[in-house]
């Protein structure tokens, strides 16, 4: 029932690598949200929210609905920057993922 069904088991491993490997948990300094973060470089950031974390974020909840809801939460971004500065989030890619 999938949009495309992979034929090789290796593809499932690729899906895991690209979507969930090397995510570091970062807790927001201002609310109860905790997200998964990956930084392949100084400029790159990948942020995976969960349903629970999303419900905790007052900023994103306030903006839900309109076009503006797609900008990141500045408090979470600041929390991630702090975590990176403190060395809690490793910066660097592993073979492209």
């Amino acid at each position: 029932m999938a949009s495309f069904v992979p034929l090789s088991p290796d593809t499932l491993e690729d899906q895991r690598l690209y979507t969930s490997a090397r995510l570091t948990e970062v807790a927001c300094l201002d609310c109860l949200a905790t997200v998964g973060v990956k930084k392949n470089s100084e400029h790159h950031t990948s942020i995976q929210w969960s349903t629970e974390a999303r419900a905790h974020c007052p900023e994103l909840t306030r903006r839900a609905g309109g076009r503006e809801s797609h900008a990141g939460c500045p408090r979470m971004l600041a929390s991630i920057e702090t975590a990176v500065r403190e060395g809690a989030v490793p910066v660097g890619a592993e073979d492209g993922y």
Partner: peptide, 21 residues
């Protein structure tokens, strides 16, 4: 959009942000 509504997994719809370098 290709699975039954009952089979929509949280990770398909959870918020995800990505800044390309």
């Amino acid at each position: 959009f290709y699975v039954d509504v009952a089979d929509i997994a949280p990770e398909m719809v959870d918020r995800f942000e990505f800044e390309v370098d």
